[in-house]
């Protein structure tokens, strides 16, 4: 390790997180198909560079909010994959005690304010958190991750306007994977899309290849530094692709194999690996990172299988203080 640059060491750390996310997502998909996970699972495979590249520039005290495809964001911000896997399995010691499941993972201890089952609602909540940062005069930023499907929801437009007029410390990260669930976003979007919409509210930022970890990292670094300095909201528009269908219930028959194969050629993990090798990082080192990630997730899977289910009485707790269910 001493032989490689600081930059390569940093990227190696990010690659480790990308592998953890990928292994987690593949295991979550297998677990769903095996009947261990209820509901559905929206896998982040193929998009890992965005969560990892952005969160590498955040502090534990910074906030993130996420969407229905949120596992990668949580792991990148520092959530424990074992607790998360248990949550997917509906276990008592899951991240949210089995009450949330795949689409409702939050970990406030690391500033992860929640995945979200309602498209664009993570963004509006992050803007509210940014307003609290301003009111409380804190040195924090809020980052929200959402997909291109969110750009046709009115509340997202409200959140752009709001973030700008109050000059709030928030980064809007649009992960453009091309599909709003199973519909091509371009087919249902008027005008020039996300960047033009953000700009129309006076919010600018950067557009990057979301499968290029170094590009995401560099853009996020610049934008987050600007936000921390009081520059107000910014956007990061990252083009990417999800290797899997919308969720585990979706057949994905609206995409051609050719399209999927072309995007797999641009896989962010493979590209990061190639760059590291070019920087003199040894293949064995990379292989060992990959193996560690796989072993970690295998342990998470095994732990989740045997973890205790919640007591039915837990269904009645944490509803509210005043007027709680009897």
């Amino acid at each position: 390790m001493s032989r490689v640059s600081n930059q390569a060491a940093r990227v190696l750390g990010m690659l480790r997180t990308m592998h953890v996310i990928r292994e987690f997502e593949e295991a979550a998909g297998r677990a769903w198909h095996a009947g261990h996970v209820r509901g559905s699972v929206h896998q982040y495979v193929g998009q890992e560079a965005i969560a990892v590249g952005v969160c590498a520039n955040l502090r534990p005290t910074d906030y993130i909010s996420s969407n229905h495809r949120g596992h990668g964001h949580s792991i990148a911000k520092g959530a424990d994959p074992v607790g998360m896997m248990k949550e997917l399995f509906g276990r008592a010691d899951g991240t949210c005690g089995g009450k949330g499941g795949s689409m409702h993972i939050a970990d406030f201890s690391i500033g992860m304010l929640g995945a979200n089952g309602v498209v664009a609602d993570g963004a509006t909540i992050a803007v509210g958190a940014a307003q609290a940062i301003k009111i409380l005069r804190q040195d924090r930023v809020a980052v929200t991750f959402f997909g291109d499907g969110a750009i046709n929801r009115g509340p997202l437009m409200e959140s752009f306007n709001w973030a700008k007029i109050y000059n709030l410390p928030v980064l809007f990260v649009c992960e453009h994977n091309g599909y709003a669930a199973t519909t091509r976003t371009a087919d249902v979007t008027a005008g020039e899309g996300f960047v033009a919409r953000a700009r129309s509210f006076g919010i600018d930022g950067e557009s990057v290849d979301g499968n290029d970890l170094l590009a995401v990292d560099a853009a996020a670094e610049r934008l987050i530094a600007r936000i921390r300095a009081g520059g107000g909201p910014a956007y990061l528009f990252a083009t990417t692709y999800r290797h899997h269908p919308h969720n585990t219930r979706d057949t994905g028959n609206y995409r051609t194999q050719d399209e999927i194969d072309r995007w797999k050629q641009k896989d962010p993990i493979a590209r990061t690996t190639a760059w590291l090798l070019s920087q003199g990082v040894a293949q064995e080192e990379i292989t060992s990172i990959e193996n560690e990630a796989r072993a970690l997730i295998e342990r998470a899977f095994e732990a989740a299988l045997v973890a205790p289910l919640p007591s039915p009485s837990a269904a009645y707790t944490d509803v509210q203080d005043v007027g709680a269910p009897q």
Binding site: T124, V127, A129, Q131, A132, A142, P155, W162
Partner: peptide
Amino acid sequence: AAAVGAAVAGT
């Protein structure tokens, strides 16, 4: 939503 986000963020 601002109220929700700001409430979970300490106000």
